[in-house]
Design a binder for these strands. Structure first.
Lengths: 345, 345
DNA sequence: ACAAATTCTGGTATCGGTTTCATAAGTGGC
DNA sequence: GCCACTTATGAAACCGATACCAGAATTTGT
């Protein structure tokens, strides 16, 4: 088994020292003549530095870890797309680390990344409550952190978040302009900041239009789940048409789809009888009929930004400490339409 | 900045040599007394070997690479779940490698894993045509391979695949028992082996029941896409009810949902007027009304198996060379029902 | 023209593990 | 009680890159 060519072999062939070869590769002092000669030898031998050796020498891991919950995996494509983009663009090609799925809340993997592999940074993609202890542990271990989260209370690390409040306001405008005045909101768990912020945005947006959300039309479900949408749909069906909300905003798409699915099965027309708005723009949102009006998060951009902050922290040795807000994009599909005229038969 | 404790420090504290500490950790000769003493010191100092150094010394990368297409990302949760399971169970805790998404067919990342990082193995999750060149390149580079693919023509590496044919037959039985005799199949691209095998299974299953698939009821779409399902739905709507298939099998769920969505919008009842079966069991399959009857692949098990073969190849230094077939699970939901009675008004 | 600063280069130490080798101490067979 | 074999242990080499340092060559400044 022929050994792979190493830096010493290149040095020998180019009649220079290992140090010089290293400098040519990484950009230190080197005369034009030597640079050219070494480059030629490298090309001829097809030499590539061995990443592991380089990382070992530099005292790095050469990778970031990405942590996310199972249920968040809808976004993974986008987040990873953003990360890839950022890392391959850099001359220092760090490898995207790993990804953990914790069906059985298994923190050991993540902790082993920190303790044993000593990753150069951790990206938490939309950590839930259970992940908070992990985030704290990571912070204690002084790993560079980037959090894609609505939470502003994190005391260190970069925080990337979507502007839920603006999105809520935008939805308010959209619905108002369609003539809706009786609007309902079904949030996720009370502790979910996303849910809270989305609600507040909606409420403020409506308030600016002098529309009030009736307290009875504001609810919070214990979990983001289609069944919760279904439960609310059943409640909606029991209301007198003259009092039922003409538009319902649900804090995420799965709930919204559960809601629509149930109404649909009962012959309720969407948006004829009620308009529906979700959050997140999951793939299924387009597959449905009618297509779900929803709000998209710039996950790709957030993934890229997370990476960028970790990279600067790593290269410039300064702790990352920033907070960035990303606008959300309202995607109007067919599930929202003009409010039904009050005088129905 | 206090340096992390290294093996030398442990050795000093336990009054033994580095070699001995290493042996205690990795299981070489060591007297019971020494083992205990070293273990105690390790616990006291909270020592953990640095993965990068270990890998460097062993000449390994300590990670596998996972390659998949954007569009395949529906399965990522399951595949990764299986991989995680397998790796964390092993005492030799290899880190799950990375994941690439090639919106712009970017092979450089994967090739850099092989050339620079020198990954210990590559897992290709359902590689498409474009990935074939990558697979070939990887094979040429003599990296251990595990392919989650329907293709049996791969000459080396482990191949994990779903038993599409059996699934096709199972669907045939299911539909036959519901009374369906006029059945249609809409496949994916002609070159897609998955699609072919699914079709053949269905055809054979029906043949065994003496039911023939009319040639006009067998089509192959140029891509797996909801629009193709929609196009076929429009065709279906134009057929005379007495000649239109009473059940349609589509080669994947997105097409099936596109099909259902279009019919639904036109007031066609499912399964009252036509039964629908898909393949893959994507998350959206449950969100729809009616829920889509489909076939689930054991992605988790396949991910785990892929890992296992790579691990044995790595540890026992023998090239992996195997082929495993996994049964698929028919998930009956509401989109299939009794065939409509022939004598409709 | 000479000192100072800058550019260039090679030798050697270094990162933190594992592995080889030599040697020592037990262990068992006959 | 001697030889062969297994078990224990430490010293030193090693993996392949980068970093530091000293010295040589070149450029710059006055």
């Amino acid at each position: 088994m022929a050994r792979r060519t190493d830096i010493a072999e290149v040095a020998k062939n180019a009649r220079v020292s290992k140090s010089t070869v290293s400098r040519v590769i990484n950009g230190g002092y080197a005369s034009a003549e030597v640079k050219a000669r070494v480059a030629k030898v490298i090309a001829k031998l097809g030499y590539t530095p061995w990443t592991t050796a380089r990382n070992f020498s530099l005292g790095r891991a050469g990778c970031f870890g990405l942590v996310m919950e199972d249920s968040q995996s809808e976004w993974i494509t986008q987040i990873l797309g953003g990360i890839e983009e950022e890392l391959t663009a850099k001359h220092i090609s760090l490898l995207v680390g790993s990804l953990v799925l914790k069906g059985t809340y298994d923190a050991t993997t993540v902790l082993s990344w920190v303790r044993e592999r000593r990753v150069d940074g951790l990206i938490f993609a939309r950590p839930g409550r259970r992940e908070r202890t992990l985030v704290d542990a990571a912070r204690k271990a002084k790993v560079a952190l980037a959090l894609i989260a609505p939470d502003e209370s994190f005391k260190s690390g970069a925080v990337l978040r979507s502007n839920n409040a603006d999105a809520g306001r935008e939805i308010a405008d959209h619905l108002y302009e369609l003539g809706h005045r009786r609007i309902a909101f079904l949030g996720g768990p009370k502790e979910s900041l996303d849910s809270q912020q989305r609600f507040e945005g909606l409420e403020n947006g409506l308030k600016a239009r002098k529309v009030k959300l009736a307290a009875s039309n504001v609810m919070f479900a214990p979990r983001y789940h289609p069944e919760e949408g279904k439960a609310y749909a059943e409640k909606w069906l029991k209301m007198a048409r003259s009092r039922a909300p003409t538009a319902v905003v649900l804090a995420n798409d799965t709930m919204a789809l559960g809601f629509m699915r149930t109404l649909h099965a009962q012959g309720v027309g969407i948006p004829r009888d009620v308009s529906v708005v979700g959050f997140d723009d999951i793939p299924a949102a387009t597959l449905f009929w009618p297509g779900l009006t929803t709000v998209r998060q710039q996950m790709r951009a957030m993934g890229a930004a997370a990476c960028r902050t970790l990279l600067t922290a790593l290269l410039e040795e300064q702790p990352e400490r920033s907070s960035l807000e990303f606008p959300m994009d309202l995607i109007v599909r067919q599930s929202t339409g003009p409010a039904p005229t009050r005088s129905a038969p």
